[in-house]
Simulated scan of single mutants.
Amino acid sequence: MPNTEPMTQRVELATLRDRLAVDEVITDYAVAVDDGDWSLYRSLFTPDGRADYRSAGGIEGDAGSIAVWLAESLQLFSMRQHLIVNRRVRFGTLEQDTGDTARVQADYVNPMRFAADGEGSAAPDFVCGGRYAFGLLRTDDGWRLREVVVQEKWRRLPERTAPAVID
């Protein structure tokens, strides 16, 4: 009986490397949005890659038009911090090659501070949360996003209190 242990170890190592590479793309996505690095954002997508932010009051479209929309709409916020957690990665097949695609389901919490509040306040003014569905494709340049769908589940604006009036 042939020893299949080295082959199994190679497959497990390749899967681990793919999981780390996919995780890096998801992390780069969050950093690009938070830092307003729209060149990086666009580079994370396949040429036909799309994103759908409609559940969060946004738009759906190709990565280039989404980057323009995000750059404009996120100017409202001086601080953004996407925390993407509970990442569930599943690899799929494309054209009979195992591991060419990946689906990632991940929850997010996104605190942001309005730019009008200035830099003095550290507390976020706006917090939302939900779930991302990422679709990735292995390309010659590595893993790239083919699809991003945001499913916002909740949002909160802290109550503002009126300044005290001194008589």
Rank of each mutant, 00 (worst) to 15 (best):
Q81C: 13
Y29K: 04
G49V: 03
D100P: 01
D100I: 06
D107M: 12
T46H: 07
G130K: 00
P2Q: 13
A116P: 02
A122R: 14
R17L: 15
L74D: 10
V68F: 04
D141Y: 03
D97F: 04
R80V: 09
L16V: 07
W38V: 01
W143D: 06
C128F: 07
A71H: 09
A21G: 03
V89W: 01
A116W: 06
G57N: 07
S43R: 12
E5F: 06
A51P: 06
D141G: 04
E60S: 14
E95T: 09
D37N: 14
E60R: 13
C128G: 02
T27C: 13
T8N: 13
S39T: 15
T8A: 14
V127R: 03
F45C: 06
R54Q: 12
V25K: 06
N110V: 14
L13F: 11
A14I: 04
P47K: 00
L137C: 09
A67V: 10
E60Y: 09
A102S: 10
V104L: 03
S65M: 11
T93A: 12
A116R: 12
R90M: 09
D18R: 01
F45M: 11
G99A: 09
T46E: 05
R17M: 11
T8S: 10
F114Q: 07
R10L: 15
G142V: 09
T46N: 09
P124C: 01
I66M: 13
D23F: 00
L20S: 05
D140R: 05
D140W: 02
Y53L: 00
L145M: 11
Q81S: 12
Y41D: 03
L16R: 15
E95Q: 15
Y29S: 05
P2Y: 11
G135D: 01
V68T: 13
A116G: 02
D35W: 05
A102T: 07
E12A: 15
G36K: 01
L70F: 04
I26Q: 07
E95R: 14
A14R: 04
R103M: 09
Y132C: 10
G118I: 06
